[in-house]
Amino acid sequence: TGEEYIAVGDFTAQQVGDLTFKKGEILLAIEKKPDGWWIAKDAKGNEGLVPRTYLEPYS
């Protein structure tokens, strides 16, 4: 299990392996990579890379 984050903006996948999401979606951070791209999972179970700058902790 990971930590929940809320998307603060829309993001469209730029390449294969990225995860597209919309502002307000809750994402589960699976792995926090030091380069600023995290592996996350959305509510539908889709998994991919997301930019850290689009996420804020969800409580």
Rank of each mutant, 00 (worst) to 15 (best):
G2S: 12
L49V: 09
E3K: 09
K23T: 09
T20I: 04
G9H: 15
E56N: 06
I39S: 05
Y58Q: 07
L55G: 00
Y54M: 15
S59R: 11
W38K: 00
I30C: 06
I26L: 08
K22T: 08
A29Q: 03
V8I: 15
I6Q: 06
V16S: 12
A29K: 03
T53K: 14
P51N: 13
S59A: 13
E4K: 15
W38H: 01
G45C: 06
I6L: 08
E3Q: 13
E4V: 15
A7I: 02
S59C: 14
E31C: 14
T53D: 15
Q14R: 15
Y5M: 06
F21A: 03
A7C: 09
T20V: 04
G48R: 01
K23G: 04
V50K: 00
D18A: 10
L28P: 01
D42F: 00
L27D: 00
G17Y: 05
P51Q: 09
L49Y: 14
N46C: 08
D35K: 03
Y54W: 08
K33E: 05
K23C: 12
A43F: 09
P34C: 13
A40V: 15
Y58R: 08
F21L: 05
V50W: 00
T53W: 15
D35I: 02
I6T: 05
E3A: 10
F21Y: 02
Y54V: 09
G36L: 05
G36V: 03
A7E: 00
E25G: 04
G36H: 05
Q15F: 10
E25H: 06
Q15A: 12
E47T: 15
A7D: 00
K32R: 08
V50M: 02
D10S: 09
E56K: 10
L49G: 07
D35V: 01
K32H: 06
D42G: 03
Y58N: 07
G17D: 06
W37C: 08
I6W: 06
L28W: 13
I26W: 06
V16P: 15
K44H: 13
D42H: 02
E31R: 09
Q14P: 05
G9E: 15
I26F: 05
A29W: 02
W37R: 09
I26D: 00
Q14W: 09
N46I: 08
A40L: 09
W37I: 08
I39Q: 07
Y54F: 13
T53L: 12
E3R: 11
T1P: 13
K22D: 04
I39Y: 13
E31K: 11
Y58P: 05
I6G: 01
A29M: 12
I6P: 00
K44S: 12
G45T: 02
A13T: 04
G2C: 14
D10G: 06
F21H: 00
P34R: 09
G36A: 04
E56F: 08
G17F: 05
E31G: 08
E3H: 10
Y5Q: 01
A7M: 02
D42N: 14
I6V: 10
D42Y: 00
D42P: 01
K44Q: 13
I39F: 11
D10Q: 04
V16R: 11
K22L: 09
A40T: 04
P57A: 09
K32P: 06
Q14V: 12
V16L: 12
A7T: 10
F11W: 14
L19F: 03
G24E: 02
F21D: 01
Y54R: 08
A13Q: 05
Y54H: 14
F21T: 02
I6Y: 07
V16D: 13
K22V: 09
K33R: 14
L27E: 01
D10L: 00
A29R: 04
T1I: 14
L27N: 00
I30M: 09
W37F: 09
D10C: 07
G9C: 15
I6D: 00
D18M: 15
F11V: 05
E31W: 09
L19E: 01
K44E: 11
Y5K: 00
D42R: 00
A13L: 04
S59W: 13
E4W: 15
T20S: 15
P34V: 11
W38N: 00
G48N: 01
A43D: 08
D18E: 15
E25M: 08
E47D: 05
D18Y: 15
W37P: 03
E47L: 14
N46S: 07
G45R: 02
L28D: 03
V50T: 03
P51V: 03
T12Q: 12
L55P: 02
L19I: 05
R52E: 14
G9D: 14
A40Y: 03
Q14E: 10
T53E: 15
T53F: 12
G36M: 05
E31F: 11
E3V: 11
T1K: 13
I39K: 09
K32L: 07
R52D: 11
T12D: 11
F11E: 00
D35T: 06
W38Y: 06
T53M: 13
T1C: 15
G36K: 03
I26M: 07
E47R: 11
Q14N: 10
P34N: 12
S59K: 12
G48K: 00
K23A: 10
